[in-house]
């Protein structure tokens, strides 16, 4: 118990507490921590249009990846759950490979795949006659966001598929047998048996998808670096730039970055809390 307590205190509680402390100081991350500024860092972030830009982009990205991943992963899970599908394990492995591939490597490779000049995506779309001229995927704000959502969804699809699959395989077979006897169609079975029983699993998958989307630093950094401009600068990148780089040629601003981190952390915590309550409620309904 004691070693565990020490580890939790050193590596979880201490950093969280110190982040809150730093957020009350004007501090570049070195030298004496002696310029107490109270809540000034918080008032600064609330007035910073780039902070709200990053805040908004983070949630757009999260909504995009969640909306794409959840149904697609469920669909694939249902297909791979079918005993009639030959080579199910091979497909499962194939969908899981991106999950275990380093995000930074994916980001770098995707940069080439989405390139305007000779990029695989543009070449494919031109070959199919869907576009006349290459799309500047990563050189325009909107398309860069779309490309990131597509890549991130693809990367994490496998783990969500496995989670759905585990949920599907835990459903009682008798219910499906009874539905079959009653003459229910596939859609009726899915709508009235599978979906209600999968809601608790769905909430967990949703929670994990959101967390994945809000911690996508390595993928974003290597694929778009937050650009063009600030079009794909999400909160993690925003915090990193202020905390660890000479953003705009000046000293790092660890105190300010801490305030942004605290503000964003509280927001994410509240969202997670709501989702956890939903998950608990869904479990109770199921019982």
């Amino acid at each position: 118990m004691v070693p565990q307590l020490i580890l939790v205190t050193a590596f979880t509680l201490y950093p969280i507490v110190m982040t809150h402390v730093y957020s009350l100081f004007e501090w570049p991350g070195f030298g004496p921590l002696d310029r107490f500024v109270g809540l000034r860092n918080y008032t600064r972030i609330l007035a910073d249009e780039l902070f709200w830009n990053a805040f908004q982009k983070s949630f757009i990205f999260m909504a995009g990846t969640v909306a794409l991943q959840l149904p697609l992963a469920l669909l694939i899970a249902i297909l791979l759950n079918s005993e009639r599908l030959y080579g199910r394990n091979v497909y499962r492995t194939l969908f899981f490979i991106p999950v275990v591939t380093t995000s930074a490597v994916i980001g770098i490779v995707m940069r080439s795949i989405f390139a305007s000049h000779d990029g695989l995506v543009n070449n494919g779309l031109q070959l199919l006659g869907l576009i006349d001229r290459p799309i500047r995927w990563l050189a325009q704000g909107d398309t860069a966001m779309i490309a990131l959502i597509l890549v991130a969804s693809w990367k994490w699809l496998g783990i969500k598929m496995i989670m759905w699959l585990a949920g599907l395989q835990s459903l009682p077979v008798e219910l499906y047998d009874a539905a079959k006897v009653d003459g229910a169609s596939f859609w009726q079975t899915f709508r009235h048996i599978t979906v209600p029983l999968l809601v608790p699993v769905g909430v967990v998958v949703l929670l994990f998808s959101m967390v994945d989307a809000l911690t996508a630093f390595d993928l974003i950094f290597t694929m778009t670096e937050g650009g063009p401009g600030f079009a794909t600068e999400f909160m993690e990148l925003y915090i990193y730039r202020y905390a660890f780089t000479s953003f705009a040629g000046g000293l790092p601003q660890l105190g300010y970055a801490s305030a942004a981190g605290v503000f964003f952390g509280v927001t994410v915590f509240l969202i997670s809390l709501v989702l956890s309550l939903l998950a608990r409620r869904a479990s109770q309904v199921r019982r």
Binding site: G141, G226, G227, P228, G229, F230, A231, F247, L251
Partner: peptide, 23 residues
Amino acid sequence: LAGKTASRPFGESMQGFLADGAF
């Protein structure tokens, strides 16, 4: 002066402008 930076950095802003023009 080294510790003072504009709220919106110049170089990244230029990249954003050339990308979308809506600036």
